[in-house]
């Protein structure tokens, strides 16, 4: 049952190319998925601002439109306000933990350098080893990069907090029991019977096409994330044949083969949305002109719009918080590796320092 431990060993050039390829792939996936998500957020924003689909369902003028009731249920199911409040409360701890690891690492370098300098002052040119300051430049540069990243993360945390404070009340309202939610929505006398009018049917058809489009995006996202391809064979063959490895060209052509079609489908779904939303805007204008507009109806519509966008913000805030939590946890792992690098080099320098010190004191 012999397993060759060296089976997966590849030349350094191939190993590094695999790393860079996986980074390119991750960036491609993030761009495609990010584009679709942003476009969907835009669509939800436009619909919420037009009070759609609620306006089409809001016949009696005093019961909760079906889409709003569904949105309320989904927020409660996703954990409601408590779940995001808890994640928001955790952010500062995650940030502090990362900062501490980084600060400790850099402090190790500083302390060792201070001692190195003191001994250099004491022994002058007899202290003939490379100054620690020079040796630690790359690590300190890396540390500086981590500091910038943490500063950007702090800004991202603030964006999430601002979004939460802007929509928190309305999200809380969505989480209230149905009767309280209903009581909080101003009622208006029943909408004129617009049911039969053609514009309502056009709007309904457009909205269902938009729903279809959004569902298709979920499928595309799933397919994109399911794509796997082992580049090692390609890299090994290229290295063997030409003796040199053009990672960029090999990776880009492979990534195009794997994701080119998806890129087309993503661009297509963006265009589809633009067309559909254009038609929605036109039909909505006609719909609003038919609908009676009085203060009660307008007040009711304003609250329904806020409730719809509160749901969308809840979904966005939750996604931001998941992303933030993952970011901090991933960064912790990377910072621990950085800390190890710092402690390894400091340990080596200390050992070397003590030997040099012993030697100098003896001679």
């Amino acid at each position: 049952k012999f397993t060759d431990l060296f089976e997966k060993m590849v030349p350094m050039a191939v190993q590094q190319s695999m790393s860079i390829y996986s980074q390119r792939k991750a960036e491609t996936v993030n761009r495609l998925v990010g584009t679709m998500r942003e476009t969907t957020n835009l669509c939800n924003g436009v619909l919420a601002s037009l009070n759609l689909p609620a306006a089409l369902e809001d016949l009696s003028g005093d019961s909760i439109p079906q889409s709003i009731a569904e949105k309320a249920r989904s927020v409660v199911q996703l954990g409601g306000l408590q779940s995001i409040e808890q994640l928001i409360k955790d952010l500062p701890e995650l940030l502090t933990r990362n900062r501490e690891i980084l600060d400790e690492s850099l402090k190790m370098l500083d302390n060792e350098e201070t001692t190195d300098n003191e001994l250099r002052t004491k022994f002058n040119q007899r202290w003939n080893r490379t100054p620690s300051g020079d040796l630690y430049k790359p690590l300190r540069a890396e540390g500086g990069n981590f500091r910038d990243i943490l500063d950007k993360a702090v800004q991202a945390d603030q964006v999430v907090r601002d979004r939460y404070s802007a929509h928190g009340d309305m999200i809380a309202l969505l989480c209230r029991p149905e009767d309280e939610l209903n009581a909080a929505i101003p009622s208006a006398n029943p909408t004129k019977t617009l049911q039969g009018s053609e514009v309502v049917n056009v709007l309904r058809s457009l909205l269902s096409q938009l729903d279809e489009m959004k569902k298709e995006r979920e499928t595309i996202e799933g397919e994109i994330k399911a794509v796997t391809f082992d580049m090692s064979a390609t890299f090994l063959m290229a290295l063997a044949q030409d003796g040199v490895l053009n990672e960029e060209q090999l990776s880009l052509s492979q990534l195009d083969q794997l994701y080119g079609a998806y890129n087309q489908r993503v661009q297509a779904t963006v265009r589809t949305q633009e067309e559909l939303l254009g038609q929605v805007q036109t039909s909505h204008q006609e719909f609003s002109s038919l609908k009676q507009s009085n203060t009660e109806a307008n007040q009711r519509e304003e609250v329904l719009k806020k409730l719809a966008s509160a749901h969308d913000s809840y979904v966005e805030i939750s996604s931001n918080l998941r992303e933030g939590t993952k970011f901090y946890n991933d960064l912790t792992e990377i910072l621990l590796k950085f800390q190890n690098k710092c402690s390894d080099i400091v340990f080596a320098r200390k050992t070397e320092r003590e030997e040099l010190l012993k030697y100098l004191q003896q001679s």
Binding site: M12, Q16, S19, I20, Q23, A26, E27, N30, G34, N145, I149, K152, A153, A156, V159, V160, N320, E323, G324, F327, D330, L331, I334, K341
Partner: peptide
């Protein structure tokens, strides 16, 4: 995405 990407930090660099 809202938070910085860590992708390029995951590329393990060899210390010379």
């Amino acid at each position: 995405s809202l938070y910085p990407s860590l992708e390029d930090l995951k590329v393990d660099k060899v210390i010379r």
